[in-house]
């Protein structure tokens, strides 16, 4: 298998009204990698994602597993890459959930038996078993999101692209969805997610790209979230847990690598307390308040 699953090189795109949507965008994802695409609203994230399977065509090149998609047939592209759109009502256009989830596999020319198997397995994966005959209109928003995800899972693409998969979802549903995404990543799928959910990104992403019509920054979650200036400049925030631990350092907690997720925080706390003989010592000095002020100011919390 080639080393790079998705490679975008110098991609530029103008909206029909002449506004520049993407300006010389380059990014790459290795097989099995999970890429998070962050950026403010209207930064061109969805537009970029629509280029990845050839729906929109800009200047520049896009290669999927080393092959330029310009030279590939749509039917071949969709076998490799699947997009889950932000609004599930756009994605679910058939009269029943079954028909919708079967739509992709049928277009791929799979046998009846295979299509049925794939629909069953995709619906089971997202927890919608038994919903086959339901009309998408009668599903709750969370169920629609899951069903929309299933329509892509049934096609079993190597690369899965998700446009704000957790937007408007309640916390439980959002967790459940990211659990499935994590499982897919563990199975070696390459995943690209456009999201505003800062809390979850460090837990799942290998690499982050910040997009605001052009790529502003790229790096690991640690590199990105420890750059306060960058976060401020791009209207982003560090995860709350990271802020909390940085504030804890003002109280004397020793922490060089700030945890970015709950899991990392638990590991850090456990290790710190264990090395200190089962206790943790925090204190307040005169300068503590000033340091806290500095940190809150750094993250934009002026109080």
């Amino acid at each position: 298998m080639p080393d790079i699953a998705v490679e975008v090189e110098a991609l530029s795109y103008k909206y029909p009204d002449g506004n520049l949507a993407l300006d010389n965008v380059s990014l790459s994802a290795s097989p099995g990698e999970l890429i998070a695409l962050l950026g403010p609203n209207g930064a061109g994230k969805s537009t970029l994602l629509l280029h990845l399977n050839g729906i929109l065509k800009g200047e520049g090149s896009i290669r999927i597993f080393g092959e330029d998609i310009k030279n590939k047939k749509r039917s071949k592209i969709i076998e490799k890459i699947g997009i889950v759109f932000q609004d599930p009502d756009d994605q679910l256009f058939m009269p029943t959930v079954f028909d919708d989830v079967a739509f992709g596999p049928l277009n791929m020319g799979l046998s009846k038996q295979e299509v049925k198997m794939r629909v069953e397995s995709a619906l089971k994966k997202v927890g919608l078993k038994g919903y086959e005959d339901r009309c998408p209109h009668n599903l709750s928003f969370g169920e629609k999101k899951k069903a929309a995800f299933a329509t892509i899972l049934s096609m079993e693409p190597e690369i899965i692209i998700l446009d704000e998969p957790a937007s408007n979802l309640d916390p439980q549903s959002s967790r459940a969805l990211f659990k499935i995404i994590k499982e897919l990543k563990d199975k070696g799928k390459t995943i690209i997610i456009a999201t505003h959910d800062i809390g979850i990104v460090p837990e799942i992403a290998d690499k982050i790209y910040i997009l605001d019509h052009k790529i502003i920054a790229e790096g690991t979650p640690r590199q990105i979230f420890s750059d306060a200036d960058l976060l401020k400049k791009t209207n982003l925030e560090a995860p709350k847990i990271t802020m909390l631990f940085e504030i804890l350092t003002c109280f004397g907690y020793n922490c060089n690598d700030l945890p970015l997720s709950i899991d990392e925080a638990i590991t850090h706390l456990t290790q710190s307390i264990e090395t200190k003989g089962g206790h943790m010592h925090l204190h307040i000095h005169e300068h503590t308040h000033n340091e806290i002020k500095k940190i809150t100011k750094k993250y934009g919390h002026h109080k």
Partner: peptide
């Protein structure tokens, strides 16, 4: 706008002018 988005979603899943169902 919705029709354009839906059309994008359809072509992303291999729509070629004919709807196939089981």
């Amino acid at each position: 706008e919705r029709s354009i988005n839906t059309y994008h979603a359809m072509t992303s899943r291999g729509y070629d002018g004919t709807i196939r169902t089981l």
